[in-house]
């Protein structure tokens, strides 16, 4: 029987209350959202917080909405909420593609978007998806709110810029016209972590030239989950199959996968390239309105 070490339990009723509790209990306290990463880690005693602060009842952290020209996802939006969100389908199908292959439906009922991002697992899918669409994380502490681009959010594996007495409150994604996006993942079996995955967001002008591109990579050691040089290559060129193949080649060249039980380095590098190309193709088809 796997049982966590002993801890104190507090339940936050608002964001301000959560920050107050984090301040009171100090660096050995942790927020728990869906708990589907943290509780397993606590069972294995990899994580041993002295105080657990439950934010499941904080209503202001829920919901997915459009705010002007930004899609706003509350940190406590469940994976199931994002998967079922008509706004996500309309504006960022990449997020829906990614959600469809995260864990399984019952886990998605409980796990949260913000929890996944804060867990900062290198194999976690949403970090790359949010990197591709240039999302911004909104973090609140005692001194108010600050905004951090998702590409500056991760400090390293399992580490983020969120401070000891801070909380991720929402993720904001700028909506721009002419865009399409997609996420492609290879997993050993349904619901598993990625062997490798790639997300792409493309913006095309009416003649089909790429005006902007975002490429996110999962589980292959890409800096900030992104493929910056491949994105740079695409800006200003026609969105053709040849261009997407070349972008995939660059992305594969720049990533730094490590060998593990999911596969050797050359296989993961191959996947990074091929999945980048496929994600770009689907993103372009969606930008042109040729695919849902």
């Amino acid at each position: 029987m796997q049982v966590p070490a002993q801890f104190e339990y507090e339940r936050a009723t608002s964001v301000a209350h959560a920050v107050e509790l984090l301040t009171r209990y100090g660096p050995d306290s942790r927020l728990v959202a869906g708990g589907h990463s943290l509780i397993p880690m606590m069972k294995l005693r990899i994580a041993e917080p002295e105080t657990l602060i439950d934010i499941n009842d904080v209503a202001e952290l829920t919901g997915i909405r459009l705010d002007g020209t930004e899609l706003v996802l509350g940190a406590m939006a469940r994976h199931a909420d994002l998967l079922a969100s008509p706004l996500a389908v309309e504006h960022f199908p990449i997020l829906v593609d990614a959600e469809r292959v995260i864990a399984d439906p019952v886990v998605r009922n409980r796990g949260t978007v913000g929890g996944s991002l804060c867990q900062a697992d290198p194999s976690e899918d949403l970090s790359a998806a949010f990197a591709a669409v240039h999302a911004v994380a909104v973090i609140e502490g005692a001194d108010g709110r600050r905004q951090v681009p998702v590409r500056e959010f991760h400090v390293g594996p399992y580490q983020t810029v969120v401070g000891d007495a801070e909380i991720l409150v929402e993720i904001r994604v700028p909506v721009r016209p002419g865009g399409g996006s997609a996420y492609e993942k290879v997993e050993r079996r349904v619901g598993d972590w990625s062997v490798a995955a790639a997300g792409a967001a493309l913006w095309l002008d009416p003649t089909g030239v790429v005006t902007d591109a975002g490429i996110g990579l999962t589980a292959v050691g890409a800096a900030q989950f992104a493929a910056a040089r491949a994105e740079e290559f695409l800006r200003g060129v026609p969105g053709s199959d040849d261009a997407f193949t070349e972008a995939g080649r660059i992305a594969a060249e720049d990533c730094r996968p490590v060998a593990d039980q999911r596969g050797p380095v050359d296989y993961k590098r191959h996947l990074a390239g091929e999945l980048t190309t496929r994600a770009l193709r689907r993103a372009a088809a969606r930008a042109r309105g040729q695919e849902a």
Binding site: P40, K43, D104, N109, R110
Partner: peptide, 24 residues
């Protein structure tokens, strides 16, 4: 399984099926 993989522990929390081995 105790690891939220097998799903034998599924019950509803409010209206939603959850894996009760991974909920306190």
């Amino acid at each position: 399984c105790d690891t939220s993989n097998c799903g034998v522990c599924v019950a509803w929390l409010d209206e939603t099926p959850v894996k009760t081995c991974t909920v306190l």
